[in-house]
Amino acid sequence: MATRRSPLLLAAAILAVGLALSVVLSEYNLRLLNLSVITAIAVIGFNFAFGLAGLISLGHAAFVGMSAYTVAILTTATGWSPWAAIPMAVAGTVLFSALIGYPLLRLKGHYLALATLGLNVSFFIITANWLSLTGGTNGIPGIPQLRLHGYFISGERYFLRFGLVFLAAVAAAALAFQRSRHGRAMIAARDDEIAAAMSGIDVTRVRVAAFALSAACAAVAGALFAEHVRFIAPEDFGYVHSITYLAMLIVGGEGSVVGAILGAVLLTFLPEWLRFLGNAYLAFFAAMMLAILIFLPRGLVSLFRRRAPRRIAEGRS
């Protein structure tokens, strides 16, 4: 299991591979890699909820969106610096997730899936119609760029290096958490709720914590998304994106941080690679996804585990 390896090693591997790629790739591939990095952060977050605590949440994109909108509104309407807006967005999103988590997380399985799906649809309707706050379906353009030591973090290459730092930090923290007592408590609460409760684990609290952690990562991803594209619209956070996050984690390998990253990278790049197939490319994309589900039920990580159990899988992406 990748989870046995040191989080620092994982962070170092992400930075090394990412930085190497940031030198050699073309602008187009850099853009896709940036999208992958941002998405990977969201999927690592999703792994807390689904991979560890077993919560099928189909509202993850709403958390990404909530944070992106907070950043966009604070920076454009009230003129905050992005550096101040990002922590605010993350804090706000986490708070919101914990608040709705308490009532929602009594639900399990597909009930939770559909409740959170409804939440995501509701988020879309509100962002699309609350014209004075969100600009409605036109979205919010012109989100100011991040500045570091007087330099703008602009261009795909520099943004990638910036995003990689976040991804490495989030991945390392996630891995460390997964191996900690708290991470094991989450897994225990998923595997056998009653036994977990018997051994002194507050199942509801553990679930809400997993949900809030997942929202925290989603919020980081959302803030980065807003700063990367610098234009957001309700469509960017529709329920389809939540389903995509789930698909990425399952394709990559649920319960695994490395799997989350692999899934995010593959499902971001795959449709773009298939563009040469013309009109049929999305059909092929779906067929390949099905093939992975059928032939690799434990996800992409299982490929690397079996064949090279002691190597770090990210080296391939």
């Binding site: 099928i56 899936a113 698909a247 399952i250 994309f285 099905l290």
Partner: peptide, 12 residues
């Protein structure tokens, strides 16, 4: 969840 994603993929 895998089944859900399976039906999503076949939907696409």
């Amino acid at each position: 969840a895998t089944m859900i994603i399976g039906t999503v993929a076949i939907g696409i």
